[in-house]
Design a protein around this nucleic acid. Structure first.
Ligand SMILES: [Zn+2]
Ligand SMILES: [Zn+2]
Ligand SMILES: [Zn+2]
Ligand SMILES: [Zn+2]
Lengths: 148, 148
DNA sequence: CATAATTTTGAAAATGAATTTCAATTTCTT
DNA sequence: AAGAAATTGAAATTCATTTTCAAAATTATG
């Protein structure tokens, strides 16, 4: 399964979501979705709108905003809020659950996943009788570049 | 060390903070701080203002808001934002660092601390060359009451 | 293909929590 | 007591997010 196939898989996923929900597929949505699934990292609606706007002067912020919401609803994007209180979107294309390291100097957001940690979380919650549906774990500090 | 002593310790702490910063101590601040240090749980500025306002009609929201900020700056309160994107304040009176379980049905916020988990976090960050200054860990799901 | 029905678009307006402004008041220092 | 400096609080502002609404685009139907 290469990256190209994966993207079209995702587009199919969204198309069936759109159909199920009685929505219509449009030129704007196609462009936004295609661009988004190719985008790495964690972008705000504003940032992503600016990127789209470079090539597509006729696509408005509101549509970009709404399409990102749609992607999140359909499960193709993750919506996240870090300490700066801005909502960011991340493509879930080929990504599985992971947590984040956020550098307070350069602002870089890097990702990590540790199964032992994840298992431990479930175990702790279990002992407290709490059923975890999802969790948020973020480390704030200095990345390897900035700590020097 | 009983609770009463602890409260006055904290007030001393704040007083010296106020002095060091060249601030003044006022009737309003005294009332707000005293009330806050007695408050359990995680309150928004708005909620806490309403509580203060019951007995003190002449203390404004802005002053409550600013005093909570001051408490956070001085280290006597923790400022936190959970998934609903509201800023909450928690008294650190007799509390040490802990993480949160947030029930998505009843909204209850409970606390837990697990040293093994905390140690593991530091270790993971270390391996990635990341220097943790602070972290955020929240579990979202159903509390033991609501999962039934 | 034409028409109707429904959804989408996007500029502009609204929302709402957080923050700032500023004139009047209070506190602190001398 | 007077002056300097900080605080107060109502109102205004900010700013990301969300909603509104009329025009345009898409889909369904005949
Ligand atoms: Zn960095
Ligand atoms: Zn990520
Ligand atoms: Zn509950
Ligand atoms: Zn807490």
């Amino acid at each position: 399964m290469n990256r190209q196939e994966s993207i079209s898989d995702k587009k199919e996923h969204l198309k069936s979501f759109i159909k199920t929900k009685g929505l219509k597929s449009t030129r704007q949505r196609d462009i936004i979705v295609t661009e988004f699934l190719k985008t790495e990292g964690h972008v705000t609606a504003e940032e992503f709108y600016r990127k789209i706007n470079r090539r597509h002067k006729n696509i408005g912020f509101t549509t970009v905003y709404r399409t990102l919401k749609l992607l999140a609803e359909s499960g193709l994007a993750a919506e996240q809020v870090f300490a700066d209180n801005l909502t960011r979107y991340e493509s879930l294309l080929g990504e599985e659950h992971h947590d984040h390291l956020i550098c307070q100097k350069c602002g870089s957001i890097t990702e990590f996943k540790d199964n032992k940690l994840e298992n431990m979380q479930v175990k702790i919650a279990d002992e407290l009788g709490f059923q975890i549906l999802n969790h948020k774990m973020e480390f704030y500090g200095y990345c390897s570049n900035c700590r020097k």
